[in-house]
């Protein structure tokens, strides 16, 4: 009986709508705020659908313990951590296999974007805390971390943006949520890229895709990543454009008083 019920889930209906009403190439709503943590060199808060992520950047600063430093480049210490209350069942706060892996791949993705060779013997510490999660949190972490790095004024070749693409119910869809990720034939591919050069800096895949499906998925990921890039851009600029508006208002007020 249970099995039969499972088969009844339709991931993409005849109108092209998904379980939560999105189209196949539609992202969940993204909201980014830069500069939320005053004591950090750079920071960002991101909401991506149900995902809620804080990213903080410290550095470049002295690399301790000293044997981890490199005289050729800055070392990026990326820490991805999930809060115990970020998932339906309590998560053991001890960093697990999954978190260590995500920290490694995300750190390496960022290293490609940052001019690490400008800061020998230093470390750039990036900490990302997942406060609430619902699939796609590693890309959310990377997106937030990239905004935080720009907010810290660390020289970068490009931002890092991305999305997950995948398959659920036999259809290729963008930005899978938890229900879609749990489909019996689900394929999930987080992809992160540098938006200007379209260079892929992170790609992981579990599941099986045909060549044709992959081509379609990659094309959709590229388009969606650019949408994420636009949100990042707006978030970074908003911090200053709002300040400008305040200044102009103050000026106007001053003129009126005169």
């Amino acid at each position: 009986m249970g099995k039969k019920k499972e088969e009844q889930i339709i991931y993409v209906d005849s109108k092209g709508k998904r379980l939560d009403g999105r189209k196949v190439d539609e992202l969940r709503p993204i909201k980014i705020t830069a500069g939320v943590i005053p004591r950090a060199d750079g920071s960002a808060y991101l909401e991506w659908g149900q995902n809620k992520v804080f990213a903080a950047v410290y550095g470049p600063r002295e690399c301790l313990p000293k044997h981890t430093a490199s005289p050729y480049k800055a070392v990026i210490k990326f820490v991805y951590r999930m809060a115990a209350f970020s998932v339906p069942d309590r998560k053991n706060p001890k960093p697990g296999r999954r978190e260590v892996e995500i920290s490694k791949v995300c750190g390496e993705a960022l290293e490609r974007a940052i001019f690490v060779e400008k800061f020998p013997n230093t470390s750039i510490d990036v900490t990302v805390e997942i406060v609430d999660s619902n699939a796609g949190s590693r890309i959310a972490a990377l997106t937030a971390a990239s905004v935080a790095l720009a907010d810290a004024g660390i020289p970068m070749r490009d931002m890092v943006c991305g999305t997950s693409v995948g398959k659920a119910g036999g259809k290729i869809i963008v930005d899978l949520d938890k229900d879609e990720e749990d489909a019996s034939d689900a394929v999930d591919i987080p992809i992160a890229m540098l938006p200007n050069s379209k260079e892929v800096v992170l790609l992981q895949l579990d599941g099986v895709l045909t060549r044709k499906e992959w081509d379609e998925a990659y094309k959709m990921a590229e388009v969606s990543a650019m949408k994420v890039y636009e949100v990042q851009k707006q978030a970074l600029k908003a911090k200053y454009i709002n300040g400008e508006a305040d200044a102009n208002k103050a000026e106007k007020k001053g003129v009126e008083e005169k």
Binding site: G59, P60, R157
Partner: peptide, 24 residues
């Protein structure tokens, strides 16, 4: 020519340079 930081560009200047708004 691309920028490597968040900052301001003066398009009329002879030099292509960015005045950063954040940084150590």
């Amino acid at each position: 020519i691309y920028s490597d930081s968040i900052g301001l560009v003066n398009d009329e200047a002879d030099f292509a340079s960015v005045v950063p708004l954040e940084g150590k």
